[in-house]
Measured scan of single mutants.
Amino acid sequence: KVMEIKLIKGPKGLGFSIAGGVGNQHIPGDNSIYVTKIIEGGAAHKDGRLQIGDKILAVNSVGLEDVMHEDAVAALKNTYDVVYLKVAKP
């Protein structure tokens, strides 16, 4: 199931950690970017929809399929206060 989640960045950013990407696979044979941690009190935690194990398909208009881990981190960092995440639920 794919959904779009709109998050408003807090003082600590979006409030979640990711793993995965080309050269840094979270699941062997899979280059996808996965949510590995939700920080308590952060934007994602308060919103409640993003969960550990969700796959991040895109940030705003930037696709995160088959990208390097660093590029995924940069895509999440290089955002304004309002961030749209395209997410696939497991």
Score class of each variant (00 low, 15 high):
Lys1Glu: 04
His69Gly: 08
Phe16Tyr: 01
Val67Asp: 03
Asp54Lys: 00
Ala75Gln: 11
Pro11Cys: 10
Lys1Ser: 04
Ile27Ser: 11
Val22Leu: 07
Gly63Lys: 14
His45Phe: 15
Gly63Ile: 10
Met3Gln: 04
Asp81Ser: 14
Asp81His: 13
Ala88Arg: 08
Lys77Cys: 11
Asp66Cys: 13
Met3Ile: 15
Lys77Arg: 08
Ile38Lys: 01
Met3Pro: 03
Val62Asp: 11
Met68His: 12
Phe16Val: 11
Gly42Asn: 04
Val83Asp: 02
Ile56Lys: 00
Phe16Trp: 01
Leu64Cys: 14
Val62Pro: 01
Asn78Arg: 12
Asp47Pro: 00
Ile52Phe: 08
Thr79Met: 07
Ala19Lys: 09
Lys9Phe: 06
Ile27Trp: 09
Phe16Thr: 01
Glu70Asp: 15
Ile33Thr: 03
Gly29Met: 06
Arg49Glu: 08
Ile56Thr: 00
Gly10Ser: 13
Lys9Leu: 10
Leu7Ala: 01
Ile52Met: 09
Gly41Thr: 05
Gly10Asn: 14
Asp47Thr: 05
Thr36Trp: 14
His69Gln: 11
Tyr34Glu: 02
Met3Cys: 07
Asn78Ile: 07
Tyr84Gln: 10
Leu57Thr: 12
Ser32Cys: 15
Thr79Tyr: 06
Leu76His: 03
Val73His: 11
Gly41Lys: 07
Glu65Met: 11
Gly21Phe: 02
Asp71Gln: 11
Gly53Asn: 09
Gly21Pro: 02
Ala75Leu: 08
Phe16Asp: 00
Ala72Thr: 03
Ser32Gln: 07
Ser61Trp: 08
Ala43Ile: 09
Asn31Arg: 04
Ser32Pro: 02
Gly13Tyr: 03
Asn60His: 03
Tyr34Phe: 09
Asn24Tyr: 08
Gly20Phe: 01
Gly63Met: 14
Ala44Pro: 01
Val82Ser: 14
Asp47Ala: 04
Ala43Asp: 07
Tyr84Asn: 14
Asp47Gly: 04
Ala75Asp: 03
Ile8Glu: 06
Arg49Asp: 05
Lys55Gln: 11
Ile27His: 11
Ala75Met: 13
Val82Glu: 14
Glu4Met: 10
Lys86Met: 13
Gly42Met: 15
Leu85Glu: 01
Gly63Cys: 09
Lys77Ala: 09
Ile18Tyr: 11
Val67Phe: 10
Lys12Arg: 07
Ala19Thr: 11
Leu64Gln: 04
Gln51Gly: 14
Gly20Ala: 02
Gly23Ile: 06
Val2Met: 06
Tyr34Pro: 01
Lys12Cys: 07
Ala72Gly: 06
Leu76Gly: 01
Gly20Tyr: 02
Lys89Thr: 11
Met3Glu: 05
His69Leu: 06
Ile39Phe: 09
Leu14Arg: 00
Ile52Gln: 14
Gly29Gln: 11
Ser17His: 06
Ile18Ala: 05
Asn24Thr: 08
Leu85Trp: 00
Val73Gly: 06
Gly29Pro: 03
Val82Trp: 12
Pro28Tyr: 13
Asp81Pro: 14
Ile5Val: 06
Ile56Cys: 03
Gly42Leu: 09
Val22Ala: 08
His45Asp: 14
Tyr34Met: 10
Pro11Val: 08
Glu40Arg: 08
Ala19Pro: 00
Lys77Phe: 06
Gly53Arg: 05
Val82Gly: 10
Gly63His: 10
Asp30His: 05
Gly29Ile: 03
Gly53Cys: 04
Val22Met: 10
Ile18Lys: 00
Leu76Gln: 02
Tyr84Thr: 12
Pro90Ser: 12
Lys89Glu: 06
Pro90Val: 11
Pro11His: 08
Ala75Tyr: 10
Leu57Lys: 07
Ile5His: 02
Ile39Ser: 13
Pro11Ala: 12
Lys37Glu: 15
Ala88Tyr: 15
Val35Gly: 00
Ser17Thr: 07
Thr36Val: 15
Lys46Arg: 10
Leu14Trp: 08
